[in-house]
Amino acid sequence: MVTDALTLIGQVLGCLGLVLALVGAVNDLIAAIGFVRFKNFYLRLHALTVGVIGGTFYPLIGLGTYALFCIAPPLGYYVAGVSYVTAFFVLITAPAGSHAIARGAHRAGYRPEPAREDKLAKDREEGVME
């Protein structure tokens, strides 16, 4: 009885993970369309965020949950471990990398093109911040 209930809960969690993977694929398609449609580099960073967190982190969590509950044990544990560890490292490294590339682009002279005002460049010219 209890075992049946646990199996049913496992099946439900696995199918939720599968749905999470499908939603993540749709998110990634939205991010790809955003890369085509946005005007300049600093706007495309938003699309990059959608593509990394919504299109990589959540599908990896979903695929790991699905593999943990719905696949026979040796293969399932292995794939679940790989996807959880990869999701953890993506969550740590991707914001650091995008911040570094944005800072480097602003220092290299790439300005936001249709913009009303660039306060960071003005502050840097006045010497307020380094």
């Binding site: 890369f35 580099f41 990896l60 695929l63 794939v79 790989v82 991707a94 480097g104 290299a108």
Partner: peptide, 26 residues
């Protein structure tokens, strides 16, 4: 055309394909 755009595009391609590998393995 510009270099930072190309860098973040390579990033997106790589992260996509990481998920693709796990899905293909399942």
């Amino acid at each position: 055309k510009s270099v930072p755009d190309m860098v973040i595009l390579v990033d997106s391609l790589t992260y996509d394909l990481a998920v693709f590998i796990v899905a293909l393995s399942i």
